[in-house]
Design a protein around this nucleic acid. Structure first.
Lengths: 230, 230
DNA sequence: TGTACATCAGTGAACGCGCGTTCACTGATGTAC
DNA sequence: TGTACATCAGTGAACGCGCGTTCACTGATGTAC
């Protein structure tokens, strides 16, 4: 009997940071306090990861700090060592989101010289981000509870700056038929709007879930006719 | 003393359907049961109105059935006479939203023959709706919990149909340089995206809160260059 | 015009729930000597 | 290399809250005769 418990305990120990279920945990804390890791390791990062998964899977309403704690095998108070409150965690999520949005925007730009192409690739990256993390995208643009956090604003501005930069390049090369601001308004609105329509499944195209590339193949010509000199 | 109570009661009676506060209500139900209207009159409509106000003022998280009941001077169970559950009320809100969005879209179209102008006016109506009911707009496009309600889909489709119709007019008059679908993708995305950026205050224009007309003055030329034959 | 009765739209009390957050505590970790 | 101690990151128990929802009930309304 004892060896069975030992076996169980051993298994559970390896599981403790991934999936956590009520009875297992009780077993752990009563039987094997000595061996269970008291410190989580990198709870902050794990919380953010788990939060993103939870957000994507259950939507904004399904995200709770207690549930995150449970999932990571940690008590309800633990997250408060890393985030002041729930809003702070959401903000951290959004900040990380903006960083990744920016990364996605510029991902394929390195090897391309043609500014028009760069604009198209940036748009594709934007849509790629939105479609692969729809709920995070909605959090960032929309219902983020407290938006006046400096770090959050900076991260957002950085992402938009990357977009602006490309348009400015177009302007510098004399490719635009309008001012940067007017061109930016159209280009950004179009891509942003398409992103939302796409994740809301409101676009009635042949393919019900078209890829980012596919959408930009459909849109770029129109956009460029709207703002480019061709 | 008695006359004071009477005076208070009289005042409160007239307030019962607007603002409701705990102690007042207790006074009512103990003192003046005879005179208080047992039936509300049109609770369903009042709930929807109050819900919309609450949504706009406190955001999606701030909306609760109990709070609505309190506000309307009605017990927590009362709303369930009119809506199966909270989601049903939200759906009703969104449905009504789509109707009004459609109305806003076509508002100024009657007197205008020029199809290009009609498109611009419809876009303006779209933005006007979004900016005057930002949270409702977000509910409709985004975090609506249960979206597979037939009536909801119909209302949505009807609004989009109005938009499509105008584009089809443009096509029929030979004004478009592209297929209706491609043109629609750009036009709708651009307007939709601008609406979101606008209510998120992400547009860096001279005026921090520009009017719908102002935005479309800035955008329409680009859009039309993108899809129109000019 | 008056009455009986079915239906409707409320009441009020209760249920259970999960949540965010706090706090005194304790085990683990890292650092100075 | 070993020890003392400050700091850190957890525990676990508790708090209060407001919420969605249910249910037996009752007062008001409208309708058939």
């Amino acid at each position: 009997m004892y060896s069975l418990y030992t076996l169980m305990y051993t298994t559970f120990t390896f599981d403790v940071n991934s999936v956590y279920s009520e009875p297992m945990n009780k077993l752990q804390s009563t039987m094997a306090t000595a061996r269970k890791a008291y410190h989580h390791g990198d709870l902050r990062e794990s919380l953010l990861e788990a939060a993103e998964t939870m957000l994507e899977e259950e939507g904004p309403t399904g995200l709770s700090l207690r549930k995150l704690g449970r999932e990571l095998g940690v008590t309800p108070g633990a997250p408060y060592r890393h985030f002041e409150d729930k809003d702070a965690l959401l903000a951290a999520l959004a900040i990380e989101g903006y960083r990744r949005l920016r990364a996605e925007l510029v991902r394929d730009l390195g090897s391309v010289d043609d500014a028009e192409q760069r604009l198209k690739l940036a748009g594709t990256g934007y849509l790629r981000f939105a479609t692969s993390h729809p709920e995070l995208f909605r959090l960032m643009f929309g219902w983020m509870p407290s938006r006046d956090i400096p770090e959050l604003c900076e991260a957002g501005d950085a992402a938009f700056a990357a977009f602006d930069r490309i348009l400015q390049d177009c302007a510098d090369e004399g490719l635009l038929s309008r001012g940067v601001r007017e061109a930016g308004l159209l280009a950004w609105s179009a891509v942003h709007g398409a992103a939302f329509l796409l994740i809301d499944e409101r676009l009635e195209l042949d393919d019900p879930k078209p890829s980012a590339e596919c959408i930009l193949d459909l849109m770029h010509d129109s956009i460029w006719s709207g703002i480019g000199r061709r």
